[in-house]
Structures are given as C-alpha cells and as structure tokens.
C-alpha cells in the first residue's frame, strides 16, 4: 500500500487510542479522589507531568486544579494532545485515507469527532464527567470494533492495529507509572485500605479489575504490576500489546518469527523477548519507575523505526539502493 496511506492509517488508529487513554487517565484520577477526598497527595499534578508538557500547562493554566487539568486534557484546542485535538488529528488522517478505510469506520470517526467537538463547547467533561468519559471510551471501542469488522485484515488494517497497540502499550505503562508514584508515597501505606482502593481504581481505569481478580484474586502491588505489564492475555497489558504489534508487523513485512528485515522489527522483537523472559521480581528490584522509563524509551525507538522503515519519503536514488541492499 501507499506509504502515505499506511502512515495516515497508523496515526489515525494511534490518535483514537490516545483519546481513549486520556479519558481513562482522567477517569481513574476522578475516581481516586472520590475514594479518598481528604488525601493530601496531589492527584492532578502527576497527570500533567506525564504529558511532558508542564511548561505549556503552567503558562496557560497555572495551578494544577482538577478543573484546569480536565480542561487542559479534554477540550483545549490549543493543546495538541487534548482529547479534542487528537480527535481532530485522527479525523484529518482519516480524511486523507477515507478511500482506504470503510465508510462505516469513517462515519464513526466523524460522529466521534462531532461528539467531542460539541461537548468541548458545553464543558461536558467538567459538568458530567462520568458521561463524558464513558462516551469517549465507547466511541473509541465502537471505532475499533468497526475497523475490525468492516476492514479487510490486510496491510491497511495491520498498520491500524500496529498503531493502536503501540500507543496502548505506552499508555498502560504511563498509567501504572504515575499511579505507582502517587499511590506509594511511603512504604507505610502499602497494604492499607486506601492502597487497596487506589489499586483497584488503577485496574478499573484500564478495565482490568475483573480480569485481574480472575487471575490473582487478592490485591497486591506486585501482582498488579505483573498483570499490567506481563500478562499475555489481558488486552491492555504491555506484553499483550507488543505481541499483537509484532504479529501485525510480520504480517506487513512477511518476515519469519525470530528474524528481522528492518530496524523496527529488530527493536520490537528484542523488546518483546525482554518482556517474555523477565518477571515482576526483577522489575521491582530494579525499580518500577526506572523500568517503565526504559520501556518507554524503547517503545519510542520502535516508533521511530516504524517511521523510517515504512513511511519516510526518501529520494528515489536512495530508496533504490536500499531496495537493492535488501534484495
């Protein structure tokens, strides 16, 4: 397929996934605050920190109050990673490839965008947050379901799948990172009721509470980390996401398992192997934050590899010599 089309499909799917995860981020924070209204631990600031755009936030909002952070992450048209902005980007990408996705997927993308756009004007994210975040998640699920059910699962679909799984892997690790930090201010809190509430909220934020219970039953920090990073069956666990991403990439390139033809495949394969052969004790011993930091750097470099391998527009001469090298 056209490189440009592949790139747009990939980003369309990534942005939709990003919108969904933003909704999950904020939703879990709101729930935590409901559960522990008197907590002295700042809940909103870490959310801003995970975006990496603290400067923009400080300049335009100042204080990290709930209202400010919610507005910043949902309806700020000037902030390029708000739900509204990523929806706009998803739609612009979708528009450039609407001939390559199904009409149904395009229509849902439109409906999703129009919903977010209209609700941004009426501040629904602040006035009825639970409705708003539920709807954003529903729209994202609907969109993904329509993609799966109406698009042929050929290269185009695999680029979409790759995009959404890379994004999800990154975001699940971030949710874990930021909540690990806020939920474990001191070792004394471990094992308290507050702690339980907190971790169940984290699991709920990735729709993982029930699935976690089926596997581990009791709430233990290590097990939550194990579940969200290393579980092979839970669809939002990092390990699951990377396996799916690797499968899609192989479907695109035709490479055999345990082989690679380009930087993206090599990096993805090696990260997947790393996760496959580690355990939660090793992760915790090394320091979860450090581990996640490292994980995110690797996920980013896979993203760069995908860009260089499949999307970058190279001059004809270079591409020719590259193709010859590969052949």
């Amino acid at each position: 397929m056209l490189s440009r089309v592949a790139e747009s499909i990939y980003w369309m799917a990534r942005y939709i996934e990003r919108a969904e995860n933003l909704a999950r981020f904020i939703d879990v924070t709101l729930n935590l605050i409901l559960d522990q209204p008197t907590s002295q631990v700042p809940q909103w600031e870490p959310l801003v920190n995970t975006t990496g755009d603290e400067e923009f936030f400080k300049k335009h909002y100042g204080v990290a109050s709930g209202e400010n952070v919610i507005r910043f992450l949902t309806s700020d048209a000037k902030y390029s990673n708000s739900i509204l902005s990523v929806l706009r980007l998803a739609r612009e990408n979708g528009r450039t490839v609407r001939e390559s996705i199904s009409s149904e997927a395009w229509e849902e993308l439109n409906e999703f965008y129009h919903y977010v756009n209209a609700e941004a004007k009426s501040d629904t994210a602040l006035n009825s947050p639970s409705d708003y975040f539920r709807n954003v998640k529903q729209h994202a699920h609907l969109f993904n379901g329509i993609l799966d059910a109406t698009l042929s699962h050929d290269a185009g679909w695999h680029f979409a799948n790759l995009g959404r799984l890379m994004e999800r892997a990154d975001k699940t690790s971030r949710i874990l990172d930021v909540k690990y930090f806020t939920l474990l201010p001191s070792a004394a809190d471990v094992g308290t009721t507050i702690d339980d509430l907190g971790w169940s909220a984290v699991l709920r934020s990735v729709s993982g509470f029930e699935m976690y219970r089926r596997r581990f039953r009791s709430l233990r920090v290590k097990k939550v980390v194990d579940f969200l990073i290393l579980d092979r069956a839970f669809p939002r666990a990092v390990q699951f996401c990377l396996s799916g991403a690797e499968w899609s990439m192989r479907e695109i390139t035709g490479s055999q398992p345990l082989t690679y033809r380009n930087a993206a495949e090599r990096r993805l394969g090696s990260l997947k192997a790393e996760l496959a052969y580690t355990d939660v004790y090793t992760i915790i011993a090394r320091g979860l934050h450090q581990f996640i930091d490292d994980l995110q750097t690797k996920i980013n470099s896979i993203g760069e590899g995908i860009h260089e391998t499949f999307f970058a527009i190279r001059p004809v001469e270079n591409t020719q010599s590259q193709l010859q090298k590969q052949a």
């Binding site: 397929m1 056209l2 440009r4 089309v5 528009r95 490839v97 609407r98 001939e99 390559s100 009409s103």
Partner: peptide, 13 residues
C-alpha cells in the same frame, strides 16, 4: 476519495 473508494483503487497525491 469517494470515487477511489467506490472503485477500489488508490487515491494518490
């Protein structure tokens, strides 16, 4: 985009 989609061909720039 519509015509490319309906014909099942690539839309190129």
């Amino acid at each position: 985009a519509f015509l490319a989609q309906q014909m099942g061909v690539e839309l190129v720039e």
